[in-house]
């Protein structure tokens, strides 16, 4: 992931490559296996056969602490269901990846505030996550994903729980991250959202049925 990277995955005999700084949409209906594909790419799951290569290195050799560190440093996650700690403050939620990395409290705070500024939630830093609206929650999640300055952000149906106006705002933010050089892997069933990505991979019944570059 560090230098001109690609991620290489085989799923049911099909290959997929992810290039650094691109935006890739994994498109498919629910149950098509698109989430599993994302989990494999994010090293949350291991393939039963075949391999995931990272900078040409087999990821199955990564275990325990090194794997955890890699995920923590290189990957950011945005989920449809947000997965915020409801009783914690927005700032604490955003700081979580840094806390897991072992960053000191003062620096955690500084960087989390910066991230909140980017998603325009500075004034909500002290609010509890449970009190936020859907759009605010997803923006908090985006701040949490970018606070650790990852190489790749995985977004699983990031706009699935949002109305179209807030959805567009969240999309805007994700693509602006991509423009800053972060690889974006989007999992969605929404063709309109997928169309905004540079590349699309269509998954059906665990097979990659179509792969197309940006129009």
């Amino acid at each position: 992931m560090d230098a001109g990277t690609s991620t290489f995955t085989a799923l049911d005999g099909v290959d997929i490559k992810v290039f650094r700084a691109e935006s890739l949409a994994i498109v498919g209906k629910s149950g098509s296996g698109k989430s599993t594909l994302m989990h494999l790419l994010a090293l949350l799951d291991r393939p039963t056969s075949g391999s995931v290569l990272l900078d040409g290195e087999d990821a199955s050799s990564l275990r325990g602490k090194r794997l955890n560190q890699l995920r923590n440093r290189e990957f950011g996650f945005v989920f449809q269901q947000f997965f915020l700690m409801p009783q914690s403050t927005v700032l604490e939620n955003v700081a979580l990846p840094l806390a897991i990395r072992g960053v000191g409290a003062a620096e955690r705070r500084r960087r989390s505030e910066e991230a909140l500024e980017r998603v325009e939630l500075t004034q909500f830093a002290k609010h509890r996550a449970v009190d936020l609206s859907g759009g605010q929650k997803q923006r908090t999640v985006i701040a949490r994903a970018l606070v650790a300055e990852p190489a790749v952000v995985f977004a699983d149906e990031p706009t699935g729980n949002l109305d179209s106006a807030t959805g567009t705002l969240v999309e805007e933010m994700l693509f602006s991250l991509n423009r800053d050089g972060i690889t974006l892997v989007l999992v969605t069933h929404d063709p309109d959202l997928a169309a905004k990505c540079q590349r699309r991979v269509h998954v059906r019944d665990g097979l990659i049925v179509d792969e197309e570059a940006a129009a």
Partner: peptide, 16 residues
């Protein structure tokens, strides 16, 4: 459970 899943996805070790 989901909070634990999230933290583990973000690279929190089992010992922690």
């Amino acid at each position: 459970t989901r909070e634990i899943g999230l933290m583990k996805a973000m690279g929190m070790g089992s010992a922690r």
